[in-house]
Amino acid sequence: MENWKNVEPEFEAPKVIKKDVESSLGFFRGAGRMIDLYLGKIGWLFGGMLRGYHVDEDPAENTPDQGSENDAGQYSPDI
């Protein structure tokens, strides 16, 4: 079994690989942040648009107060 252990010697990886991987990871992280930021902006924009089109569910609150009927069924304007 010992010959199999030595059949593929271990070599030291060139130092330049580590630097390249680090800088590539940095690039991907930066790109990821940009995408997050971009998606955040889109989300904010859509959120704003939806808020602009928002209609309250209770229409009574949106209609101007036009008075009410009294107990006798007669109309009397609210003061």
């Binding site: 593929e8 010697p9 070599f11 030291e12 990886a13 330049v16 690989i17 580590k18 390249d20 590539s24």
Partner: peptide, 24 residues
């Protein structure tokens, strides 16, 4: 893991430049 990965790439690809690119 870097030495293990690089050595494995070198063993399978038999080319130092290719092994370096592959490890990266």
């Amino acid at each position: 893991y870097s030495n293990k990965v690089y050595s494995k790439c070198l063993s399978l690809l038999k080319n130092e430049v290719a092994a370096q690119d592959a490890t990266q």
